Computed example of a mutant assay.
Amino acid sequence: MSDAQRFLSVSGPRTLEESAFTSPEPGPGRVVVDIAYTGICGTDVHGYTDGSMLPPAVFGHEWAGTVRSVGEGVSLVAPGDRVVGGVGPACGHCGQCLAGHAKNCDVVFAEANGVDEQAPDHGAFATQVEVSQRRVIPVPDALSDIDAALVEPAAVTFHAVRRASIEPGCLAVVVGAGPIGLLTAQNARAAGAGRIIISEPSEPRRATARELGFEDVVEPDELQGRMDAVTAGVGADIVFECAGVPTLLQSSAELVRRGGTLALLGFPLSESTVSYADWQQRELTVIGSLAYNREDFVGVMRLVEQGSISLAPLHTGTIELSEVKDMLEELDSGQSTHTKVLVAPRGQD
């Protein structure tokens, strides 16, 4: 195959470079995927503005597409199959696996962060990618292409909710109703949370939360009052911090009841100041969550299949490769009304 392909990469602070390549013949154990959609993530925005923080494979890591060709030894997928980009199963031979900690496999963690030995040379702000067969996960027929493009961030939140071990009927608070917050709220509801309060400053995002069936949706300055009314001052059983704003970390922790849980999904890029004594005195359980395992992709797609969570309402716009730079600037401005923007590298139908 020799047809021309294109990809975008970050070449400096707020600088993108478009490169051309020819469609490769996949090597042993590798798969070539024609990209249908790639989601723009907050990580992509930070990588664009910083210019050097992201491994090349991570710039455009939320992707879905169709298998174009497969290399020798590939048995999981075949040409024509729809797939999403994910991670492989636990390797069974790294230090973590040999110590009995397969859920924290070093190879899977490297894949999730785009630094594994088989990582592609570029991400999926591209018409095509070639990846290890470990990285492709088949998409059920019940999921649309839009759904498939949103599976990766959904898996991030599915992973976090699993780690939080939600108890049925608990009171949960979600701080931030961007894509991660909205998906976290849905996964928490599917896991059995009894009441969920969402705090978000953006009216369009609050409207999306209501569209998804959440009734307790408030502006940040209304959150404490709603909490007091609901819990008589006791606090939430669990708070999911999804905004990633360093100054919100301690205030989010103060929403948690004594003995409750603070789950961290937002990823601040600078240090946060917290009251260690407060957390200790109130015996908080603090759970960090980053990325996912392969089973998180499988599990969250099952929830979409059965209608327990809905992904398409988060999709608020589709652009082409030539528009990515302007959209990254818009999203970085903090003034965008978008929830989740998808890039169609091969053009829109």
Rank of each mutant, 00 (worst) to 15 (best):
N293L: 10
A78L: 01
I238A: 10
M301I: 06
E241R: 05
D3I: 10
T231V: 08
S132N: 02
V286T: 06
H315T: 11
Q118R: 14
V107M: 04
V129N: 05
P153H: 12
G259D: 15
E167I: 10
V274S: 12
I198Q: 01
E219R: 14
G92F: 12
H61Q: 05
E117M: 14
R82P: 04
T316G: 12
L314H: 07
V77W: 00
S310M: 08
L54R: 03
Q128E: 14
E215P: 02
L76Y: 02
V298H: 10
K103A: 14
F7T: 03
G334K: 01
D106A: 08
S252G: 04
N113Y: 02
D349S: 06
V324S: 01
F125Q: 00
R302E: 13
A253K: 04
V45W: 04
G114S: 06
F297Y: 11
S9R: 10
L212S: 05
I137T: 00
L249P: 00
H338C: 04
R134H: 13
Q186I: 05
L255P: 02
F109T: 11
P168C: 08
Q118E: 13
E305D: 10
D44R: 03
L223I: 09
I287D: 03
F158Y: 07
G233C: 04
G100T: 05
V175A: 10
A253E: 07
P201T: 09
I180F: 09
G92A: 11
L143C: 02
A207I: 06
S308W: 05
P138V: 12
P24S: 15
A110W: 06
L262H: 08
G47M: 02
T285M: 11
T157I: 01
M301T: 05
A110S: 12
C242L: 02
A126C: 05
C242S: 05
R210M: 04
R68G: 10
Y276T: 14
S202E: 12
